[in-house]
Design a binder for these strands. Sequence first.
DNA 1: CTGTTAGCGCATTCAA
DNA 2: TTGAATGCGCTAACAG
Lengths: 336, 336
Amino acid sequence: MARSTRPGIIDVARLAGVSLSTVSRAMNDNPTVDPALADRVKAAAAELGYAANPVARSLVLGRTQTVSVVIPDLANPTFQAILRGLSRAASADGYHVLISDTAEQVDEEAALVTTTRRRTDGVILCAPRLPQSGLSALLPSVAPAVVINRPPQADVPTVAADYGAATTELIAHLRSLGHRRIAFLSGVVASASGEARKRAIADASTSGDVEFVEIPAGVDFDSGAASADAVISSGATAALAFNDLVAMGLLSAVSTRGIRVPEDLSIAGFDDIPFAAYTTPPLTTAAVPSFEIGRDAWAAMHALLTGGEPTASAIFTPEVVIRASTGPVRNPAPQV
Amino acid sequence: MARSTRPGIIDVARLAGVSLSTVSRAMNDNPTVDPALADRVKAAAAELGYAANPVARSLVLGRTQTVSVVIPDLANPTFQAILRGLSRAASADGYHVLISDTAEQVDEEAALVTTTRRRTDGVILCAPRLPQSGLSALLPSVAPAVVINRPPQADVPTVAADYGAATTELIAHLRSLGHRRIAFLSGVVASASGEARKRAIADASTSGDVEFVEIPAGVDFDSGAASADAVISSGATAALAFNDLVAMGLLSAVSTRGIRVPEDLSIAGFDDIPFAAYTTPPLTTAAVPSFEIGRDAWAAMHALLTGGEPTASAIFTPEVVIRASTGPVRNPAPQV
DNA sequence: CTGTTAGCGCATTCAA
DNA sequence: TTGAATGCGCTAACAG
């Protein structure tokens, strides 16, 4: 029968015949304790199956060995990859991860960050939807914090992918294929990376020979599929989707309507999620190193936690991966 | 400037002109406190931005409002969906989720479960890879616990998908299409659901006119792709993959070898992950309600936590979704 | 090197 | 109804 109540530090002290502070020291490998005694204490602890209560330690030490990660949507492959990279790295450093999914509820984001921060040592905000003003107000009160996929924030390390540069590269790719009218499926959700994309598009359209048709869409597969008709009737010969999910939804929907990709319509996405390489045709996209972003976000947090020098903001430039979903313009679609 | 140190219960007591125990009572809506006084206390707390330290509360109350979830691989879409369902449901009940990814390291599984359990109120083991003996030894020491995707355990609620039944149905489907020689890509990882699949296959092969070729593979996309040659040379006209990931890898690899699916080879998977419907051709699979499994696992844990009646083990029977990756036998592949 | 004492911040006895 | 005292389990001063 397992003991119904776990052994406490006093039980170990009693068994080893020492004071409870000696047990504490021994268990924490404090060098000021006699080696022989330390062994005796550890043997007693092992015999009893004792391990210090982490909650009690947290209270007295003021740290929980846990960080909070707040994500807009656990169903998004990009965030999943970020979480995975983060979780693995934190685990390797002996830290635990408390995870929260805001389900894209912007108004609950701040509250979740604040609440979870109190039971952890720091919080990592993954692609927060909060407007800049709200973010600026929130961050100082929850330090240490790390922000993913937002522009550099005052006094807070940031790790992000440069969606603006990626957009520019993707546009250059499409232009080189002869596309002059491009549909842009913008995510309706307020996201910093979305703004960066729009800015890059604005730049390209003012300074170039290419025009854009913005089609408000969402951030998931279904919203991409729902935009199919709008894209088709837009007269665009190519579509730049908010992300791979949207691109795949669009690809799937236009295919069932008999539109050939890339002969009739070129489609490109962002992120390079796991299945982007296996759609039919395989998707051209800007590869965002999500796993690495998660890993680096942890590294920044770890530096903050261990008093290391504050990590500079890291920025990854996505690499455009050209696959078969984009091709040369054949017949410009008729203007509607 | 934000205060560098958060207000404590004493600060509120001082501001409200009451004792600290009255503050505690008021903040916890203890009915024995005078309503007017309670309002005054809460006003003071609001003014100071006070909220009780959750770590201190955890220590004194003996509960953390957090549960631990241990998963074999955060990159697996099925586990992601389970986690999502679990996380959403727990959050709705005011609980937090501590998440651990064992990275398929069986030997670290027990340690992770034990460790994380100590800083939480319970642990949910998602498809643990531990052998039954190890699981039986572990579970009593970490109660309350809930196990996902394992056969019913003594004194521990279980929620699982019936992979055996799903396998039987999938085989029946393939038989009805005329397939008599079927390759089974077994996951090399020790998993209970894998055993269930094998048992169903053994049953079918002993009692029927269909034979199976077991091809050891892994549990991910790449291992499915790596099995392509083995499947082709096996002479099978259909392949049952360990899961959709493996099926998609196989589908992709045989396609590049010029094998047509389903004309030359039928392929079926398990799980119905988000992209299974969008492969080319769309994948026939046994749909496992992962999100619901996660949700129900939480419900079982919540019942345990709130002293409700112990939830009976729940079992979901996956529904076979017939799509285009399976079709009638045309030319039995040549025996090698 | 080891034992004694004092909190960490709070909920909850026990008196009043 | 409220305040004073006790302790959750542990670490870290402080003595010895």
